[in-house]
Design a protein around this nucleic acid. Sequence first.
DNA 1: ACTCACAAAGTGACTAAATCACTTAGCCAT
DNA 2: ATGGCTAAGTGATTTAGTCACTTTGTGAGT
Lengths: 229, 229
Amino acid sequence: MSYSAAELPPSLSDRLTESILGIIRDGGLRTGDAIPSARELAKRFAITTPTVREALRKLEATGAVEFRHGSGTYVGPTINNVVLANPHRPPITKDSVLQLISARLVIEPAVAAQSAIARRPENLERLEAAVTNALVPPGGPAFALNFHVELAAASGNPLLQEVLASLLKVRVREQQQIRALYDNRGRDHEEHQAIVAAVRAQDAGLAERLTREHLDNIRRTVESAPEWS
Amino acid sequence: MSYSAAELPPSLSDRLTESILGIIRDGGLRTGDAIPSARELAKRFAITTPTVREALRKLEATGAVEFRHGSGTYVGPTINNVVLANPHRPPITKDSVLQLISARLVIEPAVAAQSAIARRPENLERLEAAVTNALVPPGGPAFALNFHVELAAASGNPLLQEVLASLLKVRVREQQQIRALYDNRGRDHEEHQAIVAAVRAQDAGLAERLTREHLDNIRRTVESAPEWS
DNA sequence: ACTCACAAAGTGACTAAATCACTTAGCCAT
DNA sequence: ATGGCTAAGTGATTTAGTCACTTTGTGAGT
């Protein structure tokens, strides 16, 4: 837990990642833009392609770049993130899901209160969209949890959004499992709508309470479910 | 922001990282244990070392493994993390520091309240240690911020500790800058001690209020400081 | 018996030069 | 215009080898 300071001398590939990030940032490249090819980078830094690829793989692991076979390498979605979801996260158990909900139970009510205060009109729009989409999906990606990310986005602080997005980036199968347990024909939807109403009315106390109750309901549902893995 | 689902077919190095994680987890290896050498892994999976190294670099980027030149590759400290600090985080500005403090201002009071309720005797010990160490350092690593991680640890939820540790893993230079601004001869220390007292007394409301005030003080100090980068 | 220097083995770091697989864009024939 | 083919560019992976660093154990000297 100490995250001590015994730093090793930075390897060539370490310095390379920094240089590549420099190319991206100094070049003003945004998410989706293409970066120079591996061969091009190898020539530019006078090293070989396997070494370049090692550096790029490190950036890929954190979502800073994305590979598209045959096409090129592109700036990834989390290039400017401060906190990330671990892409190599440990397997999920019922206990770890309960731990996740408990953490959200601490953080999200406070976030909801802040969002109620700071929300802007466009946040309300996106929240409405997230709430209504939550009823639509026949089996598509889990939009329901996206609601909670949008709720955090309404706080106006991108870091809070990052934190919630990282916590909620559970594997899709487990999300569906939770929803199957909890979402008995629109209960999720109703509670989300109530929260949006509180945020719209800028009633921080209410938004906080409703969010806490909502997550507490989910926690209880999961808690009473049978072990699944 | 959409984190959409356009998943590409997993590459060889993707499958490799999963296999290596399998070796670590199925083997019951813990942080600090050695994993098979790159040559050994190459032989075992019937592939070549550059490919193995790419997979290992991805794991290195998320702190799942660590390289030690000439010695071997070892299981890293964040192998079981759910959320991570971005090792390739963007450069820090005064605005980004204020954004960070604002996020903590939302999250940490709620965490402090939870910690006041759930704290166990060993948490109080570690909190005391963090508080007293905060006065010691002549220039060493920033123990002061470690206090906030320990405060989150006292909640009993490792995820909350991970979130705070990720948020606080600012570069050392910036930490010193903040401390230089704020810590006028022990003010930090006094406020930390007051928070510990509230946690010890299991007074959740007080712990929450003191934490909010503490961070608000820091925020104001940073806000009134001159631009620095 | 103890210590220290040094050699050897194991490991990571990196190079060099290819080949294969995939994507994209342009051209051509329809 | 449309469809299919071709060629260039790119990522994916291989093969074979060299260099640098760490650890360990051995053996000489004390």
